[in-house]
Amino acid sequence: MSEFSTALSLAFDLLRHADPVLVDIVLRSLRVSLLALAMAGVLGFALAALITVTRFPGRTALIIGINAAMALPPVVVGLAVYLLLSRAGPLGGWGLLFSPTAMVIAQVVLVTPLICGLARQTLEDAWREYAELFASLDLGTLRALSTLLVETRHSLLTTLLAGFGRAISEVGAVLIVGGNIAHVTRVMTTTIAMETSRGNLALALALGLILIFIALLVNAGVFFTRELAARQGA
C-alpha cells in the first residue's frame, strides 16, 4: 500500500512539475494520434459517403468487411503493418519501420474502419430521411453530400471522438511498428507497459492519469456535442 502511495505521490510530482520526459511522451502521443485521426477521418468519411449515396457491385461485401474491421485486434494490425514495412516487406524500401510515421499508419488502419462504420450508419439514416427532399430541391450529388455532412455534423464529431479514443489508448500496434524507442516512438501507452514491467510505477501512473483525463475530456466532448445537437433539434 505504501509503495502505491509513494508512486502516486511521485506521479503527482511529475505532473505538477511538467516533467520534460513526461511532456515529450504526451506530446508525441497526441501528435501521432491526432494525425492518424485526421487521415482516418478524411478516409472514413469519404468512404462512408460513397457507400451511402452510390450503389456498386461488392458494396454489401465492403460494408461487411468494414464492420468486421471495426473490431480488428490492434496487435494483428501491428503485425500486418510490420510485415508491410519491414525490410523484406513490399514497402520496406521506404524505411518507415520504427518511426512515428509507421505508428500513424498503424493507427489509421485501426481507426478508419471504426470511423467509416459509424459514419456510414449515421449518413445512411440521414440519407433515408433526406434523399427525396434533396431530389425535390434538385441538389446534385456533391451538394447533397455536403449538406448531409453538415446536417449530421454532431454525430460525425462524436464518431471522430470515438476514433480518437481508440487511437490514443491503443498499445499493441504502435509497440510492434514503433518499437518504443525513447524520444522517437515512445508514446503514453507503450511507456506505461514498459515502466510497469520495470517496476517504475511513478511515470506509468502519471501517464495513466493523463490518459484517464483525456478519456474524460473525450467523453465530455461526446456528451456536450449530443446536448448541443438535442438543443438544435438534431
Binding site: 433526406y130 427525396e132 427532399l133 431530389a135 425535390s136 430541391l137 446536417e151 445537437a229
Partner: peptide
Amino acid sequence: DLRARQAMVFQKPVLLRRSVAANIEFALKV
C-alpha cells in the same frame, strides 16, 4: 430547370437540422 419550378411537401415534414429561417434560406440558396 423543370424540377426547380416545382416543389413537393411530404406527409411527414422533412426539415433540416437548423433554424426555421435557415430552412427557408437553404431552399432559396439552392
